[in-house]
Design a protein around this nucleic acid. Structure first.
Length: 151
DNA sequence: GCCAACGTTGGC
DNA sequence: GCCAACGTTGGC
């Protein structure tokens, strides 16, 4: 089993949206970065645990945990001309982008703020806090997972 | 709203 | 294959 951190803008999809439908599979679509896509395609597996990170918002940080309930499949939004994530260069035969499905596990009682993560020496290797890193899907080691939830 | 940093595109 | 221009990310 692997651990991940996925970024999301809570205005789009927040941990509260997960909590509101705790048994439902949430389609994690719209990832449009090749490095992040490759993680989704090659490494994110059924049962993996995911930290849900809120970005570009008032309260930035890790807000909760989700679980992968469906591994890589073609991101449906790339085929939908109505979607902001539509990609004219993608086809059913040759999809470019990958989605996975997640399900709610828990909302953290307290947000683990970016500030806190940045100031924790143990988190220095986390891609999230590395200069210029913009990865929206990143691996987290078992140690980092544990340390982070203990912050 | 600003802007640094990064990724992508496309001309050459 | 280089690189300038442009677009995006995301914290502040």
């Amino acid at each position: 089993m692997n651990y991940w951190l996925f970024k999301t803008e809570p205005a789009e999809c927040s941990i509260d949206d997960f909590a509101a439908a705790p048994t439902q599979a949430i389609v994690w679509e719209g990832v449009r970065n090749y490095q992040a896509r490759n993680f989704l395609r090659d490494d994110v597996a059924l049962g993996d645990q995911v930290l849900i990170y809120h970005s570009s918002c008032k309260q930035i940080g890790v807000a909760g945990i989700a679980e992968v309930v469906r591994a890589a499949y073609p991101d449906p939004s790339q085929f939908n001309p109505q979607s902001p994530y539509f990609d004219a260069k993608a086809s059913r035969e040759q999809p470019r982008w990958i989605a996975v499905d997640l399900r709610f596990v828990k909302k953290l009682p307290l947000l683990i703020t970016l500030d806190k993560i940045k100031s924790a020496a143990k988190m220095a290797e986390l891609p999230l806090v590395q200069k210029g890193s913009r990865l929206s899907v990143m691996p987290v080691t078992a140690q980092q997972w544990q340390d982070l939830l203990n912050l």
